[in-house]
Design a protein around this nucleic acid. Structure first.
Lengths: 254, 254
DNA sequence: CGACATTTTGATGAAGATCAAACTGGGTGG
DNA sequence: CCACCCAGTTTGATCTTCATCAAAATGTCG
């Protein structure tokens, strides 16, 4: 995938919010200094860490999670190519959750000072970053709904829709298929289900000809049906751009 | 309560993050123009709204929620005195959830332009606002964990701890008791349980001498026990101030 | 090939939903 | 002042979904 070579996914995602100038893009490109290659199930940021840099996922899947006292794990968010994990954390005294990779991951690192500069000098970028964090918040709320109100089947369908949709916005789907490098146990952490039950639901979905999941590849044979089942309404992903013109003018031009 | 007269709860909350100067505080006070008095179960902001002003809860309880297609409601956050609901929404084309009151509420309104000005001119305030939105995000993640991984009993205990702790930081607890103006049905929306089950768990808690809940007043007779049961770790509320000195210097001083 | 992780299948049990009905208590209007 | 009403709470009985435990099957990698 050509897009993954650099920070293309991030740019592509951000452009859902605002048009970025060539200069904006170049600045962003340049900000990403070193790129780390990480194996699956590696810790990216641990709960309690000070977090002095911004990681941008270039390739692969990672997740935010919280560990319970009983050793179980609840994912509280998925990080896909183009996602930042994330600047704002610098304001808090420590991370309130951990971030770890799921698949192998390539992650660019933006030093904190560079990030600050970007925010300072490129208002369009700043706005786009802000937008992306708001979207992430919205996704977290949707997860509360997902885990709280949907059956196992709907819940899984919803997660699949979300992943597919998010990957689609960064150009990482091929037809009706996309990567899904999670084991069933990992899916169960994301969905707050037991691994056994995840397996049963998967079997049922396959039996209903809704999906194929093999070799880390997810194919949605009937996306429309899946969305209906899940009650999936993509609006919470805010992919249709920003509201008005305001704010751009007065923003930090002092 | 004297504190509720004005915007005191908000200031008190924000001071958990940074020391605010008298000037900061005055600016904030002045920003709050009109104050609305709202009855219980009134809509504050509806899903899809453009949201042109920032509401600050001065008194009473409100909540963020999402409605399901089947008519059921999942709360995705609680708004207590001192909470803002919230500036950032201006960046998104529309609200992805609704906000409604639970009890009667007094809410100050900050016009969007005023809010922008505040952010522009008072970096300490800006930082404090930023901090408060990050805390809110953290709380949402905790809700995912709560709904996903805890039993009904633990879940409710956790919610009670959270509410008590949050009210405590704005000076709205009296000894071991605080307001809780939610019906059992509303609790069930927050906890993703049925109203009947909420009732049963409440009965059990009362039977165990853990709490009293009567006339919208919640008393925690054994906060320590409750925390243990809930696995409540207040760190996710980030009440112990910010990390370092950095950022204050360079922040928007250009 | 053998070790190990992952997936699959079966059997059983428990937490909580749902349905239905009775009970409480505060507020209203006759 | 009382009767009624309505929202909220309480209790009982039954049913479903999903967890848990256990073990077999499959796949993968050195």
């Amino acid at each position: 995938m050509v897009i993954q070579t650099s920070i293309g996914s991030l740019i592509r995602k951000l452009e859902h919010c605002a048009l970025l100038s060539t200069e904006d893009k170049r600045a962003l490109e340049n900000a990403c200094g070193s790129v780390r290659h990480l194996g699956p199930r590696t810790s990216l940021v641990a709960e309690g860490d000070p977090a002095q840099r911004v990681n941008v996922i270039l390739e692969g899947f990672a997740c935010r999670y919280r560990l319970q006292s009983d050793g179980r794990r609840q994912m509280v968010g998925l990080l896909l190519p183009g996602d930042m994990c994330d600047i704002r954390i610098c304001i808090l005294s420590r991370m309130d959750h951990s971030i770890g990779t799921l698949s192998t991951v390539r992650a660019a690192q933006i030093p904190r000072e560079t990030a600050d500069l970007l925010l300072e000098r490129y208002p369009r970028l700043a706005r786009a970053f802000w937008w992306s964090t708001l979207v992430e918040e919205s996704i977290t709320r949707e997860w509360v709904v997902n885990v709280g109100h949907r059956t196992a089947f709907e819940r899984m369908a919803h997660l699949f829709c979300e992943i597919f949709e998010r990957l689609h916005t960064v150009g990482l789907t091929r037809g009706d298929t996309c990567d899904l490098p999670l084991t069933q146990a990992e899916l169960s952490d994301a969905l707050a289900l037991s691994a056994v039950h995840v397996n049963r639901v998967l079997m049922e979905m396959r039996h209903n000809q809704l999906i194929t999941l093999r070799n880390q590849q997810l194919t949605l044979h009937d996306y429309h049906a899946l969305r209906i089942i899940a009650g999936f309404d993509a609006r919470y992903l805010h992919l249709d751009g920003i509201k008005g013109p305001s704010f751009t003018a007065e923003q930090r031009t002092a």
